[in-house]
Nucleic acid binder design. Structure first.
Lengths: 225, 225, 225, 225
DNA sequence: CATGAATGAGATTTCATTCAT
DNA sequence: AATGAATGAAATCTCATTCAT
């Protein structure tokens, strides 16, 4: 019934088979369709917001039948969840690019963070907007927001993971790191969000630079004080 | 129907008041109803988000008939706009509290900003969430968001107004001030938003303090450099 | 939200008020609408069956808007449940007509039963068909059929109540009475159902008579043996 | 559309057999698939009812592709029709078991009928439920129920055929026999249907016995009077 | 023969809005 | 001014059916 269900086919041969079952033609077609839907949905969500979007708009944009949507996703929030996960993966991917550079100073890492976020904001604006909207699912009543919450938590954890080494010998203070992560994430997302009201895209680009310097300095100060 | 009679009743009023006719009983009742609606809507919006909220939910919570809603507001977004304006007024009010203190240093002002935001976040959480949602209506397609956009612009302007005096004799650099305003607003809103994922309320309270110091320092640095 | 919710209005005055709150104009209108829907649904259900019926068909027949349906009932099965209860009430009402006649013999009562069922079949054919369909909801998986089951149980109980006095001094044998009730109900419903295949309406009318005699005799025999 | 193509396939068969070509491998496979579908459908229909059943549910249960269904049956009602025919065949088969016993009395035959129905109810409960549902397709509006109607007519005819010899020398009164058939069928189906509400399976088993005696007596009386 | 992804007609359901009282 | 029953446009969702592989 659900397409994502993995075929357990070659489970019968417990031989060397590592290949994970090569996708059949049909499976490939399905995957393509699924991607068309994801792309269309991302576009629609970032233009209109998740709530205002309709299945019709999505499938129309994907040039697919309405029923096809329901073969692949159970509803609007299902596909939105998938997109948020995807976007967070992209963002975390960028954050990791510099990981494991043993020569990097704390300031280098912080600067890298801001750069990575900025690059993400520039090159995946749709995903940025979606993430920001996802954050908006910030409702006091926690409902079934779990699906949405998890990726963000993962994102904060990534930031923490990279910052922890710089905490020095002192006992790792979890709360302190979390604060830092929130500060970074909050600053970046918040800044871009407000920047979209008051500035032209080019101004945003040039604005981020000087702010970055002082922000890096203050965070660094905070962390090591 | 019988209410119009009251208006006439009012004319018997032997007061001199020529201009600002004091609110009649009817008017007072209407104002009360209007407030019930505003309060109910704020609660519903912050719980479910503006899009997921329904008129039914609002009037039910206000314990009023559905038709009554339309007597006071034209639709959901009308009342939301009113609430956003109200919330921004609250926030700006707090920001202004220290205004016109000629002795205040830049760092004092910045610190006051962060304090004011924090107090607002603590004591008007519903309004904070609503504002954040408003910001989240961050859609690429700018639609009739004007009503929503305006209060935020006003808010940025207030920040700018307070910071401008500290720019020194150099030519007022509008873009620089705007950057600063975005940085402040973005940091605060963003931080609280992410903090809500990763921390307990008490932790948020204690977290903001040390961050504030370094943030103030870095902003101050940035501004005067 | 739900219309059926009783106004608890005069609960404040615990005085003589027995009147049950006289229905307001609005309430009367709502009740009328509700009845229009019930009538339309009964017609549609008996013509097409509950499953094949659509909300559209019902509201169209009732000459009402589609949304109106949902003000009064939560879905098709809700209104069907209400109709089944109503029909069982009618049928039980007929069964009770002779109740409390102390002179009646067992055979009189049994004969009365068959007459009552026949009259019900003749004069409330729609309801008969609906009840029969309800019985057909006979699915092995007992789901939320409770709503449907209950009225039928009530019906069997009514039959049992009337037969119990004739059990004589011997210990009341619950199973025996239940058997009898099922036999009566099954015979009547089943007979009419099959009769609809093989006979013209007039033939059914004349057929029931001789069968009734022998059936009454045999049931009476069974009960007292 | 239908499998009639198979006939040609058979021609590859190098046997001389001109008439009754033995089933080829392909035919056997097809027959097996068809049976899997019939079994699955029977289970689903009796659990959910014919209307609530979906092709998906059936093919899933049969562990077959959805397209396969359409190779064998034209739609849900097609396969339901086939199942009803099958079930009636089973039931009629049981009815015939005692046929042609020249020594049997009318009461013997009637008793045999009730036994046969009871055995069918016990051992083919799914089919019983399906038949009962079929009977429930009792809608005032006679539609294309023909396919469904026919097997039931056949069933009544079988009953009539067995009873006719006992009508004595008097002119065969068709209506009288039909009445009888309806009485038998209605009683049995109706009784079991209601019994399913009010009794445990074991009680049903023991209940049918004493009822049978009096019912046989009364029917016999009616028939010969 | 078998498959299951894709389809879209049609059913269900929600909810903003009107309007008579 | 307040009400809430009625409405229907628009959204969601289901499922029988087709068709390329």
């Amino acid at each position: 019934m659900d397409i994502e269900v993995q075929k357990r086919t070659n489970s019968t041969d417990n031989q060397v088979s590592v290949e994970e079952t090569p996708p059949s033609r049909t499976e490939k077609r399905a995957a393509k369709t699924r991607n068309k839907l994801l792309n269309a949905a991302l576009a629609v969500f970032s233009e209109l917001g998740v709530d205002a979007a309709t299945i019709d708009l999505i499938t129309e944009r994907a040039d697919l039948g309405k029923g096809t949507f329901y073969r692949h996703f159970s509803d609007k929030y299902d596909i939105a969840g998938e997109l948020v996960e995807q976007a967070i993966d992209h963002l975390v991917g960028r954050l990791r690019e510099m990981e494991d550079d043993p020569m990097a100073s704390l300031e280098d890492v912080l600067e890298h963070f801001l750069n990575a976020h900025y690059a993400f904001f520039r090159h995946h604006q749709d995903e940025f907007v979606l993430l920001f909207q996802g954050r908006l699912l910030l409702k006091l009543e926690r409902q079934s927001t779990e699906r949405m919450e998890a990726p963000f938590a993962q994102y904060l954890e990534e930031i923490e993971a990279q910052l922890t080494p710089y905490l020095g010998e002192r006992k790792v203070d979890l709360v302190r790191v979390r604060r830092l992560a929130c500060a970074v994430a909050g600053f970046v997302f918040g800044f871009f969000s407000f920047a979209m009201i008051g500035m032209e895209p080019e101004d945003i680009a040039t604005s981020i630079k000087p702010l970055r310097q002082s922000f890096v300095k203050s965070l660094s100060l905070f962390l090591t004080q």
